[in-house]
């Protein structure tokens, strides 16, 4: 099975992606497939400052609950409220309409230290 891994993003071993341009964070195609049908997403508050590895949110499928930890640090500028009504977007479009939160990144260095698309593919 092959999973979509866009070239313009950075990745983590725990299957999050970060967009260095927009500061958006989401779950990878592989992650959404592993979790199965997502039914609920819980977000941090807009304005909260997230440290690296602090809890960013919770994603629930039918039979599992997964904590999502922030791969980088920054202040939350937006959360994807559309997911509250349509959590299935996370399954259908994980890199697009299924994004989770947007951060004002503390530093781009932190992002560039994450996995490149090639490195993530190898990790998978």
């Amino acid at each position: 099975m092959s999973f979509d891994i866009p070239d313009n993003l950075y990745y983590t071993e725990s299957h999050e992606w970060v967009d260095p341009e927009t500061g958006k964070i989401g779950l990878t195609d592989f992650a959404q497939d592993e979790l199965g049908d997502i039914v609920f997403v819980e977000f941090p508050g807009v304005g909260d400052h997230l440290e690296t590895d602090s809890e960013l949110g919770v994603v629930e499928s039918i039979k599992a609950v997964s904590d999502v930890y922030s791969p980088v640090s920054g202040a939350v500028t937006d959360v994807n409220e559309t997911l509250e009504g349509e959590p299935e977007l996370l399954n259908e479009d994980p890199y697009g309409d299924g994004w989770l939160v947007e951060l004002d990144l503390d530093s781009t260095d932190e992002v560039e230290a994450l996995l490149t698309p090639d490195e993530y593919e190898t990790h998978l």
């Binding site: 039914v39 609920f40 629930e60 499928s61 039918i62 039979k63 599992a64 609950v65």
Partner: peptide, 12 residues
């Protein structure tokens, strides 16, 4: 909504 329950969420 079984993810609220002990058999899935355990101590949480």
């Amino acid at each position: 909504l079984q993810t609220r329950e002990q058999h899935i969420r355990r101590e949480r």
